[in-house]
Design a protein around this nucleic acid. Structure first.
Lengths: 224, 224
DNA sequence: TAATATTGTAAGTGAATACTCACTATATTG
DNA sequence: CAATATAGTGAGTATTCACTTACAATATTA
């Protein structure tokens, strides 16, 4: 076995190409990224890329199929949810997102692929984003049934909360629109607003109900 | 004056080109759109485009410079804000956004230009988005000073509310992720959550404060 | 109406771009 | 070692792209 090997194994090279391509696609999108640049960054000839992937399109699909930030977060909050630790559930989600997940490259990759309406984008949405919403909405529904939250449409509430977080990341990633506060302060404020918002109205002062009655609704197929 | 004129005036042609280009840039982004397509859609020769715009880049800039949804909304809510009609202020904003503004094309145009980090994107952010945030945060600050809202960082609260709305539109535009409820129901729920969230905690049950003290803060330059 | 300005185009041009081909170099294995 | 599979490349190729050039048609005006 020679000290300095002159050849790298197939799978390793392939991974290196994927990695180089991913950061370029994230920065410039699909049509903005040239196969020549990818080859350069991966330190190989352009021809080698096409030995591993039939086309640029296939390479792009391979990248989108790999990434996924959701399952980790989901497993983290599942146990907290079982213990009905409302504040903790929302706090963990907020801290995760505000703290920087998904990272800048992945956010951009998802946005680009959604805008360029690549088919993988729909897959990503259904397999990851939607799974997460179903979980969060289910939790909110349960806490409403418990009488802990005011009766709101759980899917809308879930979307509202995730909206605060993801939009905040969006402004950060796309416009470098940082806020002066620390990530922790920011997520604490988001959670505070949300918990307060979901809280049952105090018995005295009647508060406007949103468009839902008090009686438990039949659970129809959820949209996200 | 002939019945069927064979030539169209310069400015009109120019507008037609801008319009055709805008919808294509919105659909495919800058590098995904070809000047040939633009010419075809506008019903002119490719050469004519370059008579009106020195380069594709200049055409793109002209489009981004034109669009702006913010001023209309701002003028609408200013008077409501003066009358301190909290629910109405937030409702008008919510209904406007959830109801479909900015429209799909403009949303995509803004996102694309931000991702492809066109310089016009920063301009757009500073001249329009930020102006709006400053107004909304100012309003929230004032209502805190009035003792009507709990003390939160007004910029974070503004971002939270706009996050609910814009993110909702984003899911709609990018993933066709519609919710079963009507636009009105959805915005009512958003407003309900936000107003409840901003409300002063009931005097008895102490509620966790977010990362801000009660004393009025010196107003430093705002970030959004 | 003659001169001039405006609106328009067909037919390029050179530079990129995704992808191929023919071939070499390095491993692995019987 | 011989045979074969694996990893790799330089030099294309056909096509596409943003942009130009040279020129024509139609208005406007002196």
């Amino acid at each position: 076995m020679p000290l300095s090997q002159k050849r790298i194994s197939g799978p390793v090279r392939k991974a290196k190409i994927i990695q180089s391509a991913a950061s370029l696609f994230a920065k410039k999108g699909f049509s903005g990224t040239k196969t020549r640049e990818i080859a350069q960054r991966a330190g190989v000839s352009e021809a080698l890329i096409f030995k591993h992937f039939p086309s640029k399109e296939d390479l792009y699909a391979a990248i989108l199929a790999e990434e996924s930030p959701v399952p980790g977060l989901l497993s983290k909050i599942r146990s907290l949810a079982e213990q009905q630790k409302d504040v903790e559930v929302f706090s963990v989600i907020a801290q995760t997102v505000v703290g920087g997940a998904p990272d800048s490259d992945l956010m951009r990759l998802i946005l680009f692929s959604a805008l360029e309406n690549h088919e993988m984008s729909d897959m990503f949405f259904h397999n990851h984003i939607r799974v997460f919403y179903d979980f969060l909405a289910g939790y909110i529904q349960q806490r409403i049934d418990d009488g802990a939250f005011q009766p709101v449409q759980p899917l809308i509430a879930a979307r509202a909360f995730m909206g605060m977080l993801i939009y905040h990341r969006l402004l950060t990633v796309l416009f470098q629109a940082q806020l002066p506060q620390t990530a922790e302060d920011i997520s604490r404020t988001f959670v505070n607003l949300m918990m307060n918002g979901l809280k049952l109205p105090s018995p005295k002062g009647a508060v406007r109900r949103s468009g839902q009655t008090n009686k438990p609704r039949t659970r129809t197929a959820r949209k996200v």
